[in-house]
């Protein structure tokens, strides 16, 4: 595939990763795996309590709007894809589309936030709060902590976008050293954002769908 692409400057992958390579810096994986461990514990605690009172959980779940959950999944998936494309572009000597991709990723992240706020305000206006019952306790705490991750991620995306814009403005072909140094930051931030996506992928069926 690389040979085929070599004529096109935009997306030529000059830094081919043939060797095994940890995405980003090793330290970010301490955070990512640590967070996945904690959310794993959240999911398991949720299932344990669901098993104690399945009727309550089903009835409460019926009060959620599945469309919000689904649209937000699509938002985060699209956002993740844009980020992955931006990362690929950042590996080339001349960065072109990465800033656009990061901007689109932020747009999708913001879309997630807007839908989430609409959803929360609908629930609160209907008198459903964290103390309504066990199901809504989990709903608010899990989605709330996830939303905190989204907000942190938006900050990370702004940072990556600035990096990408600086790289795109630079008209001289970047050296491998510069690319490698940039990629450590870019891949770390991107991996974090993908983790935010994958946690939501599990929360979606757990809270909104399963009967």
């Amino acid at each position: 595939m690389n040979a085929k692409l070599s004529g096109e400057s935009a997306l030529v992958r000059t830094v081919g990763h043939t060797k095994a390579h940890v995405p980003g810096e090793v330290g970010i994986w301490v955070f990512i795996l640590g967070d996945m461990l904690i959310f794993g514990a959240f999911f398991i605690v949720f299932m344990y309590y669901r098993g104690l009172n399945p009727e309550l959980f089903s009835q409460s779940q019926a009060m959620l709007n599945q469309n919000y959950g689904a649209i937000n999944t699509l938002f985060l998936l699209a956002s993740s894809w844009f980020v992955a494309m931006a990362v690929e572009d950042m590996r080339s000597k001349q960065v072109r589309l990465a800033p656009v991709f990061f901007a689109l990723a932020m747009f999708c992240g913001a879309g997630f936030g807007v839908v989430k706020i609409i959803e929360y305000s609908e629930k609160i206006n209907a008198g459903i709060t964290i103390t309504t019952n066990d199901f809504f306790m989990y709903y608010y705490i899990f989605t709330g902590l996830h939303f905190l991750h989204v907000l942190i991620g938006m900050g990370v995306l702004v940072f990556l976008w600035l990096k990408a814009r600086a790289a795109a403005k630079n008209k001289i072909a970047r050296t491998d050293d510069v690319i490698e140094k940039d990629m450590v930051l870019i891949e770390s931030g991107a991996s974090y954002w993908h983790m935010v996506d994958l946690l939501w992928i599990v929360l979606f069926p757990l809270l909104y769908l399963m009967k």
Binding site: H17, A190, H194, D197, L198
Partner: peptide, 12 residues
């Protein structure tokens, strides 16, 4: 997501 987006597929 882990394999293709996070690029764990190419990792150690």
């Amino acid at each position: 997501v882990i394999r293709y987006f996070m690029e764990v597929g190419k990792s150690p």
